[in-house]
Design a binder for these strands. Structure first.
Length: 272
DNA sequence: GCGACAG
DNA sequence: ATCTTGTCGC
């Protein structure tokens, strides 16, 4: 029987990951490299991608990696790829990319093989970009490995470089009156690492946008906001919805078919 | 001992 | 990320 939990990383593993991040970081581009980004209406932008991983309940290693491509600006799903995967790296804050990125890179490669014409012009990643302990979050990681412009979108603030959920931060959030309101996340270093954005009028909790690859923060925030029907930008939201639905359909009942509402519980681990 | 901790 | 019930509102 396979393990259902990932082991904590060895100290040596963390060192190796840090070296890898530093190595890849040299390739990050934090500026617009596409013409459509400079246009106020994003003229020329037709496809926006989104990626996400959902995990099977009660199991830390079984997950579904999903990549979707949406039309822009209509946000209709043009492409969907869900793939069951076995995650081996543990989750460690600051090293999320080593747990999730490999499967998302694979998904991007499948897309390139199957439907090269549907390749997204920008990829929204759930997690951070340069808003990260070492300035290299999963969105940067994916950007460098795929060459695609990437934007990090986190649902929670990663408290780094002096950023904290302190009283000042909470007050700044309260001051975000309407959808579209935002404030910069300036670290102790003086650097602006990202933007807190009230993406949806009805949600008071902001999302945290940061540069991943081949984009500037201004374009990134503007694009993310233009993709929000709800709090979470549609590409990521669709990837999330579809990946968890995929898990539900493929794992809820070993025999397939719809399982009755309440009253399911898979135990029964036959021993010798 | 207490707080932090993207997903 | 996932575990969980009801609840308030359109």
């Amino acid at each position: 029987m396979a393990h259902s939990e990932t082991e904590p990383p060895e100290e040596e593993t963390l060192r190796r990951w840090e070296r890898k991040q530093a190595q890849l970081k040299a390739n990050v581009i934090e500026e617009d490299t596409e013409e459509w980004q400079k246009d106020s209406t994003f003229a020329g932008l037709e496809r926006v991608g989104g990626v996400d991983l959902s995990y099977a309940k009660g199991n830390n290693t079984i997950a579904c990696a999903s990549l979707v491509v949406l039309s822009y600006p209509d946000l209709e799903v043009l492409y969907e790829d869900c793939q069951m995967v076995t995650v081996s790296a543990p989750y460690v804050a600051g090293y999320l990319a080593f747990r999730e990125a490999p499967f998302l890179v694979e998904a991007a490669q499948r897309l390139q093989e199957r439907e090269p014409g549907l390749r997204p012009q920008v990829l929204l990643v759930d997690g951070n970009g340069v808003l990260h302990h070492r300035g290299f979050g999963v969105a940067c990681h994916l950007g460098v490995l795929t060459g695609l412009p990437c934007i990090g979108v986190a649902k929670n603030l990663l408290q780094v470089d002096g950023l904290a959920k302190d009283e000042l931060h909470k007050e700044q959030i309260r001051d975000l009156q309407m959808g579209g309101a935002m404030f910069p996340l300036r670290g102790t270093s003086g650097r602006v690492l990202g933007m807190a954005l009230r993406s949806y009028n009805k949600s008071t909790k902001p999302i945290y946008v940061s540069v991943g690859h081949r984009t500037c923060l201004e374009s990134a925030v503007r694009l993310v906001q233009s993709c929000c029907r709800y709090r979470i930008p549609e590409p990521i939201r669709q990837a999330d919805i579809r990946s968890r639905e995929y898990i539900r359909k493929n794992l809820s009942s070993p025999l397939g078919g719809t399982s009755p509402g309440p009253g399911r519980k898979e135990e029964a681990e036959p021993k010798h």
